[in-house]
C-alpha cells in the first residue's frame, strides 16, 4: 500500500464496496429498461420482450407472484419503482446513498453530493405512474452513473478506499454482463441458427446496447453474429464492460489492497485464478464447452469471491487469535 494511505476501517471498506455495487446495479437496470423501451418501437406488436428482462435479472418467480403478466407497465414498476424489491433502481439508489452516507468522511463531498443528488432527483421523477416514465429518465440515470464514476476517479485519491470502490464496481459489472448474456443468448439463439428474420440483428444489437457496447463491437467485430457477441461481451480485452476486462481491473485493485498486508487472502487467490483463466480462454472453446455452463460457473465463482472478501477484509476479527483470553466483538 502506498505510504500516504491512512488505515481503512473494515466497516468503511465494506460500505465503499457496496456503495459502488449498488450504483453500478442501478445504472445497469436503467440501461436495460432504456434499451427495451426503444426496442419496442421497432418490433411487431405480438412479441413480448418484457419477460426476458425479468429473466435477465433472475427474478421470474418473485415477479410472477407480485405482478403476474410482464408488460411495460408492470416491468417498469417492478424494476424501477418498487421499493420492496431490493434490486429496483429506487432501492439500489437508496442503498447506495445509505452506504455513501455511512462513509461520508472518507469520500470527497462532491461524491456524496452526487449520489445524494441522484437519489433525490430520481425519487421525484419516479413518483409518477410507470407508464409515464420515458426512456429519457433512464438515460438520465445512465449518464448520472457515468458521472459518478467520473467524480470518483477525478476527486478521490486513488488510495485503498478508492480501490474498494473500483473493486465493487467491477465485480458488479462482471456479474451483470454475464447474466445479461446468459439469458439473451439462449433466447435468441434458435432464430439465429434457423431462418434469419429482419429482427435478429435488431435483437442482438439491443443486447450490445444493453451493455453500452454496440459501437465498440462494430469497430472490432463488424457484422453481428451470436458467437461474436458472446466473445465480445465475455472476452474482449479492451471493452470496459466485458467480463474479462472487469475481472482484470478487479484483480488490479485487489492486488493493491492486498499489498498493505502480509496475510494470505483467499479472495486474492480465487479472483486471480479466474482472471488468468479468462486471459487464456478462446471464444470457440467457451462456446463448444457450453456457454450456459460457463456463465453459470462464472457466477458461482464470483459469489465465492464475494464471500471470501467478506471473510478476508470486511469482517471484524478478534485481536488475539493465538491466546485464550479473547473478547468477542459483535459484528452487525
Amino acid at each position: 500500500m502506498a505510504t500516504d494511505s491512512r488505515p481503512l476501517l473494515s466497516r468503511v471498506a465494506d460500505s465503499l464496496y457496496w456503495m459502488a455495487r449498488y450504483m453500478e446495479r442501478a445504472e445497469n437496470v436503467a440501461r436495460l429498461l432504456e434499451v427495451n423501451l426503444h426496442l419496442q418501437l421497432d418490433l411487431p406488436l405480438d412479441g413480448n420482450q418484457w419477460q426476458p428482462l425479468i429473466d435477465a435479472c433472475g427474478e421470474a418467480p418473485l415477479f410472477k407472484k407480485r405482478y403476474g403478466e410482464a408488460t411495460q407497465e408492470t416491468v417498469v414498476a417492478f424494476l424501477a419503482q418498487d421499493r420492496e424489491y431490493p434490486n429496483s433502481i429506487l432501492s439500489c439508489l437508496l442503498a447506495a446513498r445509505e452506504n455513501a452516507r455511512s462513509v461520508r468522511e472518507t469520500i470527497p463531498s462532491e461524491m456524496y453530493e452526487h449520489v445524494n443528488g441522484i437519489y433525490l432527483r430520481v425519487q421525484e421523477q419516479y413518483a409518477k405512474p410507470a407508464e409515464e416514465l420515458s426512456p429519457e429518465v433512464f438515460r438520465d440515470l445512465r449518464l448520472s452513473g457515468h458521472m459518478f464514476q467520473g467524480v470518483t476517479d477525478a476527486t478521490m485519491s486513488h488510495n485503498e478506499a478508492w480501490h474498494f470502490v473500483r473493486l465493487g464496481r467491477q465485480m458488479e459489472r462482471a456479474d451483470k454482463t454475464s447474466r445479461l448474456l446468459d439469458v439473451k443468448y439462449f433466447m435468441l439463439l434458435p432464430s439465429a441458427t434457423s431462418v434469419g428474420t429482419p429482427y435478429d440483428d435488431l435483437l442482438w444489437s439491443a443486447v450490445l446496447k444493453s451493455a453500452s457496447g454496440f459501437e465498440m463491437y462494430r469497430q472490432t467485430r463488424g457484422t453481428i453474429t451470436p458467437r461474436h457477441v458472446a466473445g465480445f461481451l465475455v472476452l474482449d480485452h479492451d471493452f470496459p464492460r466485458s467480463i474479462r476486462h472487469s475481472i482484470a481491473r478487479a484483480v488490479d485493485s485487489l492486488d493493491v489492497i492486498r499489498a498493505g498486508s502480509n496475510t494470505q487472502y483467499e479472495s486474492v487467490n480465487l479472483l486471480g485464478e479466474l482472471g488468468r483463466e479468462l486471459e487464456e480462454m478462446e471464444v470457440d472453446t467457451m462456446i463448444r464447452s457450453g456457454l450456459h455452463e460457463f456463465l453459470d460457473s462464472l457466477q458461482l465463482r464470483l459469489n465465492a469471491v464475494g464471500a471470501a472478501l467478506q471473510r478476508d477484509l470486511f469482517a471484524l476479527r478478534q485481536l488475539k487469535q493465538t491466546q485464550t483470553q479473547t473478547q468477542t466483538v459483535g459484528a452487525d
Binding site: L8, L9, A13, G260, L319
Partner: peptide, 9 residues
C-alpha cells in the same frame, strides 16, 4: 484498537 482492513490499529 480500531479494526481496519489490515488488522487492528
Amino acid at each position: 484498537w480500531m479494526q481496519t482492513t489490515h488488522g487492528p490499529r
